[in-house]
Design a protein around this nucleic acid. Structure first.
Lengths: 179, 179
DNA sequence: TTTCCGATGCGACAATCCGTCGCATTTTCC
DNA sequence: GGAAAATGCGACGGATTGTCGCATCGGAAA
């Protein structure tokens, strides 16, 4: 079991939630919200694992992978991003990340990725997370995050999600699916 | 410039088009349409590069990556798939593929991937996307990740996602939304 | 080897949802 | 103050979903 984890995300709310969830499960957790603090913390703590967001202000989290591995070569880096793409996933893994996950993702999946040390890429005997997000819940969380990033602007959110504004309004009018 | 390329795709039309396009550009091209032929050809030809489809009947192209690299360790493998997902991209790169591209893709992009030999891994090629994933795309990625965690078991995946098995089958049968 | 269980594929149907349209109102920004 | 954008929402045709049910297949257990 991994002991020390550094969580890197510029969203303080997300950072806090994830740090608490990991601490609750017995991990030593620290956090950073920008590139400079990340490398300072890595130098000081030599974490065994890093949960790394890609959108860190003007700096891409991709640019932190190799410096982090230079500091702690055995460090497992799990990239976690709200702006996922196959291209950046390929790049991240080539640069040395262990795993790449798109937000929103359940904490158990993050932990599974952190603890995973597969030789072949397929986790040996690792059971799947007991309770992945349902598709409805996934959609709700995703919509809420993008809506927040657009300051509650429904039209802009619908455009960003490539969804019709009417459809988004209908979805928002519903009570969210219980987790 | 790479000289010998093995194209692996079970679609004869696609195979023919790509083989001719690569031959026209001066490459020595051979092709295979199933797993067994692929390994036989690789043993005989020791290609410098392989363009590898993932959907090869009942065998996943992912399962060919390591056998191919065992035969030709310096071989560059570019994975092409019409059912691209982050989960399979991550797995392909971890297994040793050089690049992973979603169909439809232009021949020039395939060639660029085949010839690409990055030394430093500077991630200038893959900036993070400006837009978040659409809801449809996010759903596809989530389904693919959970499906892999359940070893391709559709019934178990449907239960985990709290979705009807019939619905999941319909979603899996569709080509995913372009990223 | 046989049996049983779970997985799988898929058509059909009713219910639900989505994309679209359009109009009126409200809010924001210049 | 005015223009532009955002917002709310009903209605309609088409698409999708949940459900049902049946047949087939593969693997595990007896």
């Amino acid at each position: 079991m991994t002991q020390s984890i550094l969580v890197v995300d510029d969203d303080p709310v997300f950072n806090g939630v994830l740090v608490r969830a990991l601490a609750r499960r017995g991990y030593e957790v620290s956090s950073a919200m920008d590139a400079e603090t990340t490398l300072t913390a890595a130098n000081a703590l030599a974490p065994e694992a890093v949960v790394l967001d890609l959108n860190l202000g003007s700096v891409s989290g991709l640019n932190l992978i190799q410096p982090l591995l230079a500091i702690a070569p055995d460090c497992r880096i799990v990239v976690l991003t709200g702006y996922a793409s196959i291209a950046t996933a390929v790049e991240a893994i080539k640069l040395g990340a262990t795993q790449y996950l798109a937000k929103p993702v359940e904490v158990d999946a993050i932990i599974a990725a952190l603890d995973d040390i597969p030789e072949s890429g397929v986790p040996a005997d690792a059971p799947p997370p007991a309770d992945p997000l349902s598709v409805d819940r996934l959609e709700w969380e995703h919509i809420q995050r993008i809506l927040r990033e657009h300051d509650g602007n429904i039209s802009a959110t619908a455009r960003a999600l490539k969804m019709h504004r009417r459809t988004l309004q209908r979805k928002l009018a519903k009570r969210p699916v219980r987790a």
